[in-house]
Simulated assay, not measured.
Amino acid sequence: MRDLRSLETVLWIVRLGGFRAAAARLNTTQSAISARVAQLEQELGIRIFQRGPRITLTAEGTALLRYAEQMVDLREEMLRAIADPASMRGLLRIGISETLAHTLLPRLVQRIGAAHPGIVLDMVVDITPALRQSLVAGHIDIAMLAGTVDDPRAINEPLCSYPLGWLASPALGLPDRPLRLAELTRWPILSFSHDTEVSAALRALFDQAGTPGVRLWGSTSIATMAELARAGVCVSVMQLIVADRELASGALRQIHVTDVTLPDVAFHVSYIRKPDSHVAATIAALAREISGTHDR
């Protein structure tokens, strides 16, 4: 076995479910993937895969996979420990929630550019459920999202936590005192889209409060939440940190509601443990350092 390339090929075939998908991921041909596997089988004197309608590992292939994972992981650990950061190269696909795009991302991009000039960034801003799906499917390399990614291959590390707040336009004429939820039901309550954990938590809180007539609207855009609140269309529930300018200018005001306690939203940085996760792990550590959670 001259290098780890053949072992990495086996790992990608197993994780992506076939030779064709592995070839696409490794930017080569299916015949080249088959040749690597055949060469490894010849060197070891075993058969790694059972061919059929579905690719499956033989008993020897299953044993090989465990060692392959250990060897590739050890190489990744070595690179993280001793490689020159400036030597990192290639495309890194980052998926990030809109809250973090407004708060963490500018500093992170600046640090990546200074410490890792060879890394090319491709960034997408989306809601947490979509980011989870994209990470597991291999469409992005690293996700910064609310909550975690539930996958046995996923590494989830805490990033930061932001409180939610009730925001409304002064034009609504709400009293300058703590209010009960029932006093807000004249307007829709706008927060994150209905398939997010934040929206589910809000629905549970409103049910517990027992206030009839609460209309919970959803949006994938924080900018939309702020704009509709400024227009007096609704009361928005969103992270206070992304509305600093609106609060400071008086375009929005924070409302204190006595019978519902809003949760903080905890964000994590997640990536999939795989043969080429060295860069993602390095950038995850950098994101945690910037957010103040590194090595806590």
Rank of each mutant, 00 (worst) to 15 (best):
H139Q: 15
H194M: 09
G218S: 10
D207I: 11
L174N: 09
D141S: 13
L184Q: 01
G165R: 02
W217T: 00
F206Q: 07
A146Y: 07
D195T: 09
A229R: 06
L184T: 02
E197N: 11
S169W: 10
T220C: 03
Q208K: 15
P175N: 11
S193D: 10
I222A: 08
R186C: 00
P212M: 06
W217P: 01
A168K: 04
R180F: 11
T224R: 15
P158W: 05
E157A: 15
V214F: 13
A182F: 02
A209D: 10
T196R: 01
E227W: 10
L184E: 03
W166V: 03
G232I: 11
E157H: 12
W187I: 08
P188S: 05
I189P: 09
S169L: 05
R203L: 12
T148E: 15
S191Q: 05
P175W: 11
P212A: 12
L159Q: 11
Y162S: 02
T185Q: 04
M225D: 02
H139I: 07
D176T: 07
D207T: 13
A154Y: 03
L181A: 03
R203Q: 15
V214P: 12
L184A: 05
W166I: 02
L145T: 08
R186Q: 02
R230K: 14
P212K: 12
A137R: 12
S193T: 13
W166H: 03
S199K: 09
L159T: 10
P152Y: 09
R203E: 13
D151Y: 07
T224E: 15
G213W: 08
L205G: 02
G173M: 06
F192C: 01
L172G: 05
A226V: 15
V233L: 11
A204K: 13
W217A: 05
G138V: 15
T224A: 14
W187Q: 06
W187T: 06
A223Q: 14
V136P: 04
P170G: 10
D195E: 08
D150C: 09
P188C: 06
A143W: 08
D207G: 09
I140M: 08
R177W: 07
A146R: 06
G210Y: 14
R153S: 11
S221T: 04
S191F: 00
L172V: 01
A146F: 06
R230G: 08
